[in-house]
């Protein structure tokens, strides 16, 4: 029986959390050694001292890429966990609320009409990710039935569908030889172009957001209750949920603007985290952040080392995520039958 089903012994869950942190440390070290120079897969540590090209590769390409993967994974895993709790729905992730469709539309718009410069694509993706969420919120406020969560879910569906349709129109208008491949490549997602400058751009946004979410982690438990109950516990459910969602989406918009669409991390990682350390957000949230980084880091390692060419990261995360999800669904069915 998983930790989630039986509730969770706190000490055991804490030990698991530390073990996950240790695993992340090992993964980060191994990732720095992984690559295709000087030979495939492993770069010997001695090359750091004797091979200038290897040193440059590690310090200026692999390390910023690893740091970006850490920020990306922690944000997607953490915001997925946060959104699932706030919306009281374990099938929600940061693609929800028009965030990812907004980012995709923003990036496509910049590629088609703003020349496609990286800064323009990233800025436009981040701006439309936030606008997608703002539009969802404003529409939800005008819906006159259902509780706040239902209204926001419905508004998110409307905004996502509208933005996806608009992105389709941009693809239709795009130059099929130059712009369309750029849009497609951005949507597949990846960290191949990450530099130290990119890391320094997103870290000041992402790190404070992650700290705020981490500090509010116990409050998430309260916000996962129904509005009426949360209210009776002295919480302003609508306002506090909005603050948390804005923080989570801001971090997501920042990382997605650099990495493109990386699917399924925010959906599956919180499930794994809850199975390992229980559902209390005091442990489930940090576990989701740590496991998100491990998952993205591992997928990115495969993406850049398995073949001579780069495999799009979003493609890998979606593939692995979908397989994992299939396993979860089939296992649950078996549990029900038995």
């Amino acid at each position: 029986m998983s930790a989630e089903r039986r509730g969770c012994d706190e000490r055991r869950a804490s030990r698991r959390l530390w073990a996950i942190a240790g695993l992340l440390f090992v993964c980060a070290l191994v990732s720095a050694a992984l690559g295709r120079y000087p030979g495939p897969f492993l770069t010997p540590p001695a090359a750091l001292f004797h091979d200038e090209l290897a040193r440059n590769l590690i310090l200026n390409l692999r390390v910023p890429r690893i740091l970006a993967a850490l920020l990306l994974g922690a944000t997607l895993g953490g915001s997925g966990a946060v959104l699932q709790m706030v919306f009281r729905n374990p099938l929600v992730d940061s693609g929800f609320l028009g965030v990812s469709p907004g980012a995709a539309f923003g990036a496509s718009l910049a590629i088609v009409f703003l020349g496609g410069a990286p800064a323009a694509v990233q800025g436009s993706a981040a701006a439309f990710a936030l606008l997608g969420m703002a539009a969802s919120y404003l529409i939800a406020q005008r819906i006159r039935f259902g509780d706040w969560v239902l209204r926001l879910v419905l508004a998110g569906i409307i905004v996502s569908a509208t933005l996806s349709s608009a992105t389709g129109a941009l693809k239709y208008l795009a130059d099929p030889l130059k712009q369309l491949p750029d849009i497609t490549f951005w949507m597949l997602g990846g960290l191949w172009a990450i530099t130290w400058r990119d890391v320094l751009h997103i870290a000041p946004v992402v790190l404070p957001c992650l700290v705020v979410l981490h500090l509010m982690r116990w409050r998430l438990n309260v916000l996962s209750l129904r509005d009426e109950t949360a209210f009776s516990l002295g919480v302003a459910p609508g306002r506090e949920r909005l603050v948390i969602v804005v923080v989570a989406v801001a971090a997501t918009a920042a990382v997605v603007s650099k990495a493109g669409q990386i699917g399924w991390v925010g959906l599956i990682v919180p499930h794994i985290a809850r199975r390992l350390v229980g559902s209390d957000a005091r442990r489930a949230l940090p576990a989701s952040m740590l496991l998100g980084t491990i998952f993205v880091l591992a997928c990115d390692d495969v993406a850049r080392t398995l073949l001579n060419g780069e495999i799009p990261l979003g493609l890998l995360t979606s593939f692995v995520g979908a397989l994992f999800f299939l396993g979860v669904v089939l296992r649950r069915q078996a549990a029900v039958r038995s």
Binding site: R5, R226, G278
Partner: peptide, 22 residues
């Protein structure tokens, strides 16, 4: 409340602890 559907599987102790929110 009449019933309290819990979306995530908090333990009984973690659930009772939520009463400290105010």
């Amino acid at each position: 409340p009449q019933s309290e559907p819990v979306a995530f599987e908090l333990s009984v102790l973690e659930f009772a602890l939520l009463g400290r929110a105010p």
